[in-house]
């Protein structure tokens, strides 16, 4: 398979940012996926030679700036999530579809849990069960990324 172009990554990041900036209504915000997180995790696993923890961290920073929340908290959770994805990257590309779904759900769940933790430290309140819903829409978006940009590339058989 051809290596991914770096410009593709930047372009999808921009598109993700636009979706992030879309004025979501009250009910929309409950199911809104974390566009930038899904896109960047996909590229991290698909093209680790272009997209490293730093880029995912930068995407988190963009989310922080666009939501107007405390600068650095999304960036921190994105970086940790990226790390958890990256250390298993070699194995993940060998997984079958369902194993991969499970691991990806785990990653998105970890990110949301970390954000929740940070917000609770800052004096937030515990949200209701709908807080977990975006993980499902994250997974749907993940599937779209797979459709548009292909399954994760396996290394060539020797």
């Amino acid at each position: 398979m051809k290596p991914v172009k770096f410009s593709t990554i930047v372009f999808t990041m921009l598109v993700g940012l636009i979706f992030q900036l879309y004025p979501w209504s009250n009910s929309g915000i409950i199911i809104r996926p974390d566009f930038l997180l899904v896109i960047m995790i996909y590229w991290l696993l698909q093209a680790p030679y272009h997209c490293n923890i730093g880029w995912v961290w930068f995407a988190g920073l963009l989310v922080d700036l666009s939501t107007g929340s405390l600068l650095g908290q999304h960036a921190l959770t994105f970086a940790i999530t990226a790390f958890l994805g990256l250390i298993y990257q070699r194995r993940l590309v060998l997984f079958n579809r369902w194993q991969l779904y499970l691991y990806v759900i785990f990653l998105f769940g970890v990110q949301r849990a970390l954000i929740l933790l940070l917000k609770l430290f800052a004096g937030g309140e515990i949200p209701d069960w709908t807080y977990g819903l975006p993980v499902i829409s994250d997974l749907i978006l993940w599937q779209f990324m797979i459709i548009w940009f292909g399954e994760l590339t396996r290394p060539k058989k020797l």
């Binding site: 730093g54 988190g60 650095g72 960036a75 970086a79 940790i80």
Partner: peptide, 14 residues
């Protein structure tokens, strides 16, 4: 090390 660097950076920013 990369993770540690960015964690530290974001903590400082926060």
């Amino acid at each position: 090390p990369r993770l540690m660097f960015f964690c530290a950076l974001s903590l400082v920013m926060m």
